[in-house]
Simulated assay, not measured.
Amino acid sequence: MFAVLKTGGKQYKVQAGDVLRVELIAAAPGEKIQFNEILMVGGEKPVLGAPLVKGAAVQAEVIDEIKADKVITFWKRRRKHSSQRTRGHRQKLTLVRVTDILATGAEKSGVKEAIGTQAARVAAHNTEPKAEKAEAAPKKAAAPKKAPAKKAEAAATKE
């Protein structure tokens, strides 16, 4: 039995025992997670989702958090100005091992849903109670401006 799951904007065809490198997931190593966005479940009777298969899930165990290979970009902005710059980037990934494919009953499994770190930050931000704004203190009246005394004194001494 195999399944096609979607996570991190990508699609993966998986079977039990497969090891995947997926976008960073908010889960600790050793934790069991569940992917709920299943596009297809294959086997003797394939089931296609429209767009997702209802009740299907893929359960996996988090092995480790790793970094991908370094990607180096080189920018040359303008000619005749020696304006060059290199930038590097290493994407953070989560290494997971697929343990089970559920065609039905995903809601009753009780396993934590796999969500990306960005989605976890947004969810945490939306669930925090908003602090009440303190009443603004009335503004103090501005002091009257004083005339420049030095110029007046200098004019008086010249006469």
Score class of each variant (00 low, 15 high):
19 V>F: 06
88 G>R: 08
84 Q>I: 05
46 P>W: 05
35 F>I: 13
87 R>L: 09
146 K>G: 07
122 V>I: 12
88 G>H: 15
106 A>Y: 07
138 P>C: 04
92 K>Q: 04
43 G>C: 08
68 A>T: 11
159 E>K: 13
17 G>V: 00
63 I>S: 05
122 V>Q: 10
127 T>P: 05
80 K>S: 04
132 E>Q: 04
151 K>N: 01
81 H>L: 13
44 E>Q: 13
108 K>F: 10
65 E>I: 13
158 K>M: 02
150 K>L: 05
143 A>D: 10
151 K>Y: 01
81 H>C: 06
75 W>K: 05
77 R>Y: 03
137 A>R: 09
56 A>V: 02
77 R>V: 05
64 D>V: 06
33 I>A: 00
46 P>C: 08
97 R>E: 05
41 V>N: 07
143 A>P: 15
18 D>S: 03
6 K>I: 15
119 A>Y: 02
39 L>K: 10
58 V>P: 02
62 V>F: 10
30 G>L: 15
65 E>A: 10
155 A>S: 03
38 I>N: 02
29 P>D: 06
15 Q>K: 02
31 E>A: 11
104 T>W: 07
18 D>W: 00
77 R>K: 15
58 V>N: 05
117 T>W: 01
60 A>Y: 03
100 D>K: 14
148 P>G: 12
37 E>R: 14
111 V>N: 08
113 E>F: 00
7 T>R: 01
99 T>S: 00
54 K>W: 02
49 G>D: 02
37 E>V: 12
49 G>T: 03
133 K>P: 15
152 A>L: 10
134 A>S: 08
11 Q>K: 06
148 P>E: 00
139 K>Y: 14
30 G>T: 07
133 K>H: 11
6 K>Y: 07
100 D>G: 01
51 P>A: 13
36 N>A: 07
91 Q>R: 09
70 K>Q: 13
105 G>C: 10
88 G>V: 04
9 G>C: 03
70 K>C: 11
19 V>K: 00
7 T>N: 07
88 G>N: 12
157 T>M: 13
26 A>M: 01
85 R>V: 02
82 S>P: 04
59 Q>T: 00
86 T>C: 05
97 R>Q: 06
105 G>T: 01
105 G>K: 14
30 G>H: 09
84 Q>V: 03
151 K>Q: 08
80 K>A: 03
85 R>G: 04
125 H>W: 12
99 T>K: 01
48 L>I: 02
139 K>R: 11
4 V>P: 03
31 E>T: 10
82 S>Y: 09
50 A>R: 14
120 A>T: 15
134 A>E: 10
119 A>N: 12
7 T>S: 00
70 K>F: 14
159 E>V: 02
22 V>L: 11
116 G>V: 06
50 A>L: 09
31 E>H: 15
66 I>W: 09
77 R>G: 05
75 W>Q: 07
128 E>D: 08
128 E>G: 02
143 A>R: 12
114 A>K: 10
132 E>K: 03
111 V>L: 12
135 E>H: 09
56 A>R: 01
89 H>D: 10
137 A>L: 10
61 E>P: 07
26 A>Y: 11
56 A>C: 04
83 S>D: 06
83 S>T: 04
114 A>W: 15
87 R>H: 15
118 Q>F: 00
152 A>N: 02
113 E>Q: 05
47 V>H: 09
73 T>S: 03
44 E>P: 11
103 A>F: 03
124 A>Y: 01
